[in-house]
Amino acid sequence: MKQDYPRQGLRIRCEQGVHPEVRRACLEFGKWLRKEFEFPIRVVVYLKKDYQIKSQADKELVSGTFFGPFDKNQEPYIRIATGDYLELLEENGQDNALAAILGTIAHELGHYYQWVDDDYLELDDEGAENERDYMLDLYAQTREHP
């Protein structure tokens, strides 16, 4: 049963202070995602310059969060911390550092799809990790570097 929601699609919003290379890679990933996947309810990904962000549920410090409102007429959103990019860059190199951040986006999108499919009572990390791996594998086939 398909319901028409007010808006569809994926948007990426970048806070001032996010590293330009992270911004570029995330916007490029977003473009690709829009071609490959449907987003029946508009979801905005907010790229934050913070090292970590607090999850809303248990106030833990995490690298990404998904918020799916109970009312599907309200739009969900994702927040991604990118402040550890330079540290990841130094430890793992550019490709792996960017892949880690894109992986966080893909993981949270896994939760988005669980929410869209009304599996929001069980936003399980295993399902989100599978979605993450699937998206990153597909994306890696389209380019040499993130």
Rank of each mutant, 00 (worst) to 15 (best):
L10G: 02
R13Q: 11
R13H: 01
E15W: 07
V18S: 09
V18C: 14
H19V: 05
R24S: 05
R24C: 01
K31N: 11
K31L: 03
K31D: 10
K35Q: 08
F37D: 03
P40H: 08
R42V: 01
V43D: 03
Q52G: 01
S55P: 03
S55L: 03
Q56Y: 07
A57H: 06
K59D: 10
K59I: 00
E60V: 07
S63H: 13
G64Q: 10
T65R: 05
P69T: 05
P69V: 06
K72M: 10
K72W: 01
K72H: 11
N73D: 15
E75L: 09
P76R: 05
P76G: 03
I78C: 06
R79S: 07
R79K: 09
G83S: 06
G83V: 06
Y85A: 01
L86R: 14
L86Q: 13
E87N: 11
E91Y: 10
G93E: 09
G93T: 05
A99L: 13
L102C: 06
T104Q: 06
T104R: 04
T104N: 10
T104V: 15
I105S: 08
E108N: 03
E108M: 01
G110A: 03
W115S: 03
D117I: 08
D117F: 13
D118Y: 15
D118P: 00
D118A: 13
D119N: 12
L121N: 11
E122Q: 12
E122Y: 14
L123D: 09
L123N: 11
D124F: 08
D124I: 10
G127E: 09
G127F: 05
D133K: 15
M135R: 15
M135H: 02
D137W: 10
D137I: 09
L138E: 12
A140I: 01
A140P: 00
Q141R: 14
R143F: 02
R143Q: 12
E144I: 13
H145L: 10
